[in-house]
C-alpha cells in the first residue's frame, strides 16, 4: 500500500501530476458534478416525491415501453448478432469485408437520420411497410416500431463483442470435441456456445443499455402516443418543456440508476469472463 506512492515518485516519466490533474478536473466538471446534480435534485424530492412521479400511469407506461422494447430488441440482436459474427469469422464469401464494415453503420449514422429513414421504410407506403400493411402488421407509430429502432441501434454491440471471442476461440477445442465423437451440432451447443455465451450476454446488456436511453432513432418511428408509444426519454423532454424540472429529474434519476445497475452487471460479467479465461489454455 504505502509503497505505491514511493514508486510513483521515483518514476522517470514526467507529466503525471499535470495529466492526472487535468483528467480529474475535466472529468469532474463535465461529467461527475453535473451528474451528481441530478441525484442532488432527486434527493431533494425525497423517495415519496420520486415515487409519486414515477408511479404515475404515463411514466410507468413509458418505462415499460422503453425497457420492454429495448429488451426485445436486445434479444433479437442476441440471436442475430452471434449469427452474423459467426458468418463473418468462419465463412468466406464475396464482399465479406464490406458487409463486416457495414455492421458499424448504426454507430456511425446520426440517430435522427436513422430515425427518419426507419420511419420512411416502415410507414404504410414505405419499402417494407407496404408489404406488412396487407398482413395487418403496423410497425411505424406503434411499439413495434420502437422495437425495430432498438434492434437497429443495438446490433453492432452484440456483433462486435462476440466477434473477437469467436476469432480467438481455439480451433483445437472443436477438434477435440470431434475426436471424442461429438457431432457438429453437439460441438456447437456444448463447446462453442458456452465459450461465447459471456460475450453474447455482455453484448446483449450493452445493446439493452443503449436502447433504453435511445432517443433520436426512436421518436420518429414511435408515434409518441401517450400511454402507448411514448418512450421515457421523450417524457423527460416533455416534462422539461413544461418546466417540471422535478418530474424530469425523478424520471431521469430512475433511468440513471437502472442504467448504472446494468453497467455494473456488465462489468461483473466481464471480470468473471476474464478470470475464467485467465490461465486456462
Amino acid at each position: 500500500m504505502s509503497a505505491t506512492p514511493v514508486r510513483r515518485a521515483r518514476s522517470v516519466i514526467p507529466g503525471f501530476g499535470i495529466t492526472l490533474g487535468f483528467t480529474l478536473t475535466y472529468l469532474s466538471l463535465i461529467v461527475l458534478i453535473p451528474l451528481a446534480g441530478i441525484f442532488l435534485k432527486a434527493a431533494g424530492l425525497g423517495f415519496s416525491g420520486i415515487w409519486e412521479v414515477v408511479s404515475s400511469p404515463r411514466v410507468l407506461a413509458s418505462l415499460k415501453l422503453s425497457f420492454g422494447a429495448a429488451l426485445v430488441g436486445a434479444a433479437i440482436n442476441g440471436v442475430f448478432g452471434p449469427l452474423l459474427a459467426w458468418v463473418f469469422v468462419r465463412y468466406r464469401f464475396f464482399g465479406k469485408r464490406f458487409f463486416d464494415a457495414a455492421v458499424d453503420l448504426p454507430f456511425a449514422l446520426p440517430t435522427a437520420v436513422a430515425g427518419i429513414a426507419l420511419t420512411a421504410l416502415y410507414s404504410p407506403n414505405g419499402w417494407i411497410g407496404q408489404f406488412l400493411t396487407p398482413l395487418g402488421i403496423k410497425v411505424a407509430y406503434t411499439p413495434l416500431g420502437v422495437v425495430v429502432a432498438c434492434t437497429f441501434i443495438g446490433l453492432p454491440f452484440v456483433v462486435r463483442t462476440v466477434q473477437p471471442v469467436l476469432e480467438e476461440a481455439e480451433k483445437e477445442l472443436e477438434e477435440a470435441a470431434a475426436s471424442l465423437g461429438a457431432t457438429r451440432w453437439q460441438t456447437i451447443t456444448r463447446v462453442i456456445l458456452p465459450t461465447v455465451l459471456p460475450a453474447i450476454l455482455t453484448g446483449f446488456a450493452l445493446a439493452f443499455a443503449r436502447a433504453v436511453g435511445e432517443y433520436g432513432s426512436v421518436i420518429f418511428i414511435a408515434g409518441n402516443l401517450p400511454m402507448i408509444s411514448e418512450i421515457t426519454p421523450l417524457l423527460i423532454i416533455i416534462k422539461l418543456e413544461e418546466f417540471d424540472y422535478a418530474g424530469a429529474t425523478a424520471v431521469a434519476g430512475t433511468m440513471l440508476v437502472l442504467s448504472f445497475a446494468l453497467l455494473l452487471l456488465i462489468n461483473l460479467l466481464q471480470a468473471w469472463v476474464r478470470r475464467r479465461n485467465a490461465s486456462a489454455r
Partner: peptide, 27 residues
Amino acid sequence: IRERRVGFVFQHYALFKHMTVLDNIAF
C-alpha cells in the same frame, strides 16, 4: 474423425474451460 475413435491429445490440451475435470473426461 468422429467415426475413427482415436484419442487425440493436443499440445495445449484443448480442455473445455467451462466444464469441470469430470465433465471434460465424461464428454
